[in-house]
Amino acid sequence: MIPPEFDYVAPTTLAEAVAALGEAGEDAKILAGGQSLIPVLRLRLAFPTTLVDLSRVPELRGVSEDADTLVIGAMTKHSDVVEDPLVQQHAPLLSEATATVADPAVRHRGTFGGALAHADPAGDLAAVALALDAELVAEGPGGRRTIPARDFFLDYLETSLSPDEILAAVRIPKLRGSWGVRYEKFNRVAQAWAIVGVAAAVRTEGGAIAEARIGLTNMGSTPVRPAAVEAALVGASDRAAVVAACAAVAEGLTPPSDLGAQADYRAHLARVLTARAVAHAAGMSS
């Protein structure tokens, strides 16, 4: 279908973009890579008055370091995140998960910040941002503020960004020490959304788990960080102990029931995939 009519502006600096968004009013939408928004427009599920296109704002692209933190511009494309040597070195969980997003052509357009701001709980990257304790940097008319990932995802497609704010960058603390990572994604066919996904980063000491960070994809209306399971995993030194600790991963969660899977099946998948991801990350696969 042909999208509904809208006005279009393409600012070239972040300051211009914030001003344009403010001027366009509350029914404006930000256009990042467009790989979710443009299909939504084509299906006429949204009727924005104005699109503020960020693709011509160079300061929003690229990966850099700020001491112990990796700084990823919100408009950095998935394909660039996957290939970036700094991301591979300091946040390999993000490289691994991003490589599973959609397909190569979509990854050539879709952006890291766009995926997070879209906040689809079936998207792979929100769980990764949550597991890695990322901070989201938002720029608005009142200036810049930093939002921890745990406070960013509020509900299905809803974040704590206010309508006049733009997600500018994502700050990810570098992993230090002997961390292993794994993103386990379960879907029925290539390029499909995750029915359930599990992002795991695990630090081991002397063959036992010293610290575990886990993010769950599509197990609720937001990405989920199962803190009790993370705590229970500490000290686990073999696969059986990992499986036992992960048995409670779906407790208290209300995963969706849809064409992809019923809620109880998702709970089962979460238990299996979390154990698999943690065991792999900890080098206990066999």
Binding site: Y8, A10, L31, G34, L51, S79, A105, H108
Partner: peptide
Amino acid sequence: GESVKSCSVLAVQ
């Protein structure tokens, strides 16, 4: 230089 699905790009982009 990159493969793209042209149904998910605006001409103005």
